[in-house]
Simulated scan of single mutants.
Amino acid sequence: MDNSRTPTSRHVLFLNWRDTSNPEGGGSEVYVERIAAELVAAGHQVTLLCAAHERAGAADTTADGVRMLRRGSRHTVYARAALTCLAGRLGLGPLSRRGLGRPDLVVDVCNGVPFFAPLYAGRPVLALVHHVHREQWPVVFGPWMARLGWWIESWLAVRLYRRCRYVTVSQASRAELAELGVAAERIDVVPNGTPPVTGAPLPRSTHPSLLVLGRLVPHKRVEIALRTVAELIGKLPDLELVVAGQGWWEQPLRQLSVELGISDHVRFTGFISEEEKHAVLSAAWVALTPSLKEGWGLTIVEAAARSTPTVAFRYAGGVAEAMVDTETGLLVDDEREFTDQVRELLADDVRRKAMGEAAFAHASRFTWAATGTRFAQLVAQIAHGGAGR
């Protein structure tokens, strides 16, 4: 065992199907890795087990003191997680080889499909759910897979994790979990922090500019942003939309921009670095979050940290908590209103600037240090109490 551990330190094992270097990584992965880093800073030992991928390079790496175990593929990572935990219970496998032994707590990150950790962990399990995927299953999968996925998430998982504590990122997600049958008193809310802005202040673009930041997958509904641009360029001929991010849905989006006749007004950046992200967030006049569902809305707060207001949909889960409607951004009910509000905000320099200033102040309320402290409290409570064994 690692002799550096103190009586109050814990070994926490996160099970997540992706990490931030994965081409399909997103806000969920940012949350997990920032929380993990904060736990390490607080004196805990943290291991993150996730799927291997080409961009990762070596199978086992360390970042911010977090031990990374990349095992299996997008689909087989679930089985590899079970084998790793079972081997750890026997004093074998990668956890034992690193001198860590069995974890004190397993954090099962349930992105629609859970890792089923209560069946094999032999340790307390904390279920981390960013949001309920009710609306997303039929958008991403065919009818049969959508029904199976929703049954696993809404019926099987609720029963399998019935003795476990839950943590989620917004009150909206907490309410949805309660609707599925998870006892409200077992659900803690630990919202995202705001990544620090390390770059120098940058000016806005000289022309009207919009930004969509995130993974390019169907449920992010970037199509709505494209159709908005198509409707606005008649009176705003120099309008530009920056689509920052990557994903398997990029080609259909590119094709739609051609069909709408706006390809000269849309710039697809692909994967961007933190420096490039800072630049596009700072340059945008308005950020757009047309997503069908978000557990929180990390990109909304990231934009706010650069004094950039966001337009999003009121029904899209935690986005309503990541902003203050009409003060730091605008929440809308349908696509028609989305386009109208974007048009009005682009045309009103005074209102847009005031929203940006309020957004900046709002973003400062959310820090990763505070988030990490709250999560560390959960770790201590659950590991000590033994819930989820």
Rank of each mutant, 00 (worst) to 15 (best):
D2K: 11
S4R: 15
R5G: 14
H11P: 12
V12E: 10
G27D: 00
E29G: 07
V32L: 07
R34H: 13
I35H: 03
A36C: 03
A42C: 09
H44C: 01
A51D: 10
E54V: 09
T62M: 06
G65Y: 04
G65Q: 06
S73I: 08
H75V: 15
H75T: 15
H75E: 10
V77Q: 03
A82P: 01
L83Q: 14
R89P: 10
R89Y: 12
L92A: 15
P94E: 02
P94C: 06
R98G: 13
G101W: 09
V107P: 13
V109Q: 13
C110M: 07
N111H: 11
N111M: 11
G112Y: 03
G112W: 06
F116L: 13
V140W: 14
G142I: 04
S154H: 14
L156D: 00
R162H: 12
S170R: 04
A178E: 13
I187T: 09
I187W: 13
D188H: 10
V190L: 05
N192V: 11
T194Q: 08
P196D: 05
T198M: 03
G199C: 08
P201W: 06
H207C: 05
S209G: 03
V212A: 02
P218W: 14
R221W: 10
V222H: 13
A230I: 14
G234Y: 04
D238P: 05
G247R: 04
Q255D: 14
S257H: 09
R267W: 07
H278Y: 02
V280G: 02
A284F: 10
P290A: 11
E294A: 03
S307L: 06
T308D: 01
T310M: 00
V311C: 08
A320Q: 15
T328K: 00
L330Q: 15
D334M: 12
E337W: 04
E337N: 06
Q341W: 08
A347T: 01
D349F: 07
G372N: 04
Q377E: 15
L378Y: 08
Q381A: 15
G386L: 01
